[in-house]
């Protein structure tokens, strides 16, 4: 076979449907996927096609982030936003997991709560802002409440679905071994659903971050979302870019943390 043919064959083997990719090749493609948009962005900004006010270049964004950090309160903004997201998210997880577990396990609870939850989750969280301000005021708890409203109802339904996906034979096997209902919940349903639950938390964490900006509309005077909104008023597009990218990076970090927890806690899923 000529070397040309060999290269063609290798190229073709990359496109096997659901094929395998070596770690090195995977990283190369991932890097390519990240660098192309970055390069395009940089290209557009240096070409002068677009006014810097509309499209700041990568370097403008980096230097803006630097001054934000040095002269303004970037680290405080990051901290307070992360705190709001984590508080709202934790509150919803602490309530949604037991409620979803009950919905997915006992039919009467499902009948009582699932249609109701389905109904509420279609109400736009943003529309609750005036009510939240009225009820909880304008301090930290109102921002946490908005994030909670945005994530909790979805989370309940997803947890219930995870619990319902536990194979019935796993439950019946425990029944024939004489397990009581409480034992089935604690020794079969919970451990069986755990990996799916952690994935649900990972996905809903993303939603919590999207509700952050909404939450910081509510009379905030700090935070990444608030800074983005204020930058809009002063036409500081570079700061808007910096804020958005920072939220993306924090989200990516937390996502990776969840994936790491998954591999660490459920080694049996990764052994073949």
């Amino acid at each position: 076979m000529s070397s040309r043919n060999k290269i063609l064959a290798r190229w073709d083997s990359l496109w096997v449907i659901r094929g395998e990719l070596s770690r090195r090749t995977y990283l190369m493609f991932a890097l390519f996927g990240m660098l192309v948009p970055l390069a395009a962005w940089w290209g557009v900004s240096v070409s002068g096609w677009m006014d810097k006010v509309f499209m700041p270049g990568p370097m403008d964004v980096v230097s803006r982030a630097y001054t934000w950090f040095m002269e303004d309160e970037l680290s405080h903004d990051i901290w307070i936003s992360t705190y709001r997201v984590l508080a709202g998210f934790t509150l919803s997880a602490v309530l949604a997991i037991p409620i979803g577990l009950m919905i997915g396990t006992y039919r009467p609870v499902q009948a009582m709560l699932e249609p109701l939850t389905d109904f509420i989750r279609y109400m736009p969280a943003v529309a609750f802002i005036p009510l939240v301000m009225l009820w909880v005021g304008i301090d930290e708890s109102s921002k946490i409440a908005i994030i909670f409203i945005g994530t909790f109802f979805q989370m309940v339904l997803m947890v219930a679905e995870d619990v319902r996906r536990v194979p019935i034979t796993q439950i019946e096997a425990a029944q024939t071994m004489g397990a009581s209902r409480a034992e089935i919940v604690s020794l079969v349903i919970v451990p069986s659903a755990k990996p799916a639950l952690l994935d649900t938390l990972r996905v809903t964490m993303g939603w919590a971050w999207t509700y952050l900006v909404v939450a910081e509309l509510v009379a905030a005077n700090s935070g990444l979302g608030y800074s983005i909104l204020r930058a809009q008023r002063f036409m500081q597009t570079d700061k808007i870019f910096a804020g958005i990218i920072l939220i993306g990076l924090i989200g990516l970090t937390i996502d990776q943390l969840f994936r790491w927890l998954h591999r660490r806690n459920f080694p049996w899923m990764y052994k073949k």
């Binding site: 034979t169 796993q170 004489g178 397990a179 034992e183 020794l187 451990p191 459920f266 899923m269």
Partner: peptide, 24 residues
């Protein structure tokens, strides 16, 4: 059962001993 009745998060030994942690 025909399948899917073992507990994938437990080792072989832990699966076999499962009934011992039950009150019954």
């Amino acid at each position: 059962f025909q399948h899917y009745s073992l507990y994938p998060w437990l080792t072989v030994t832990e699966n076999i001993k499962f009934s011992r942690q039950l009150r019954a």
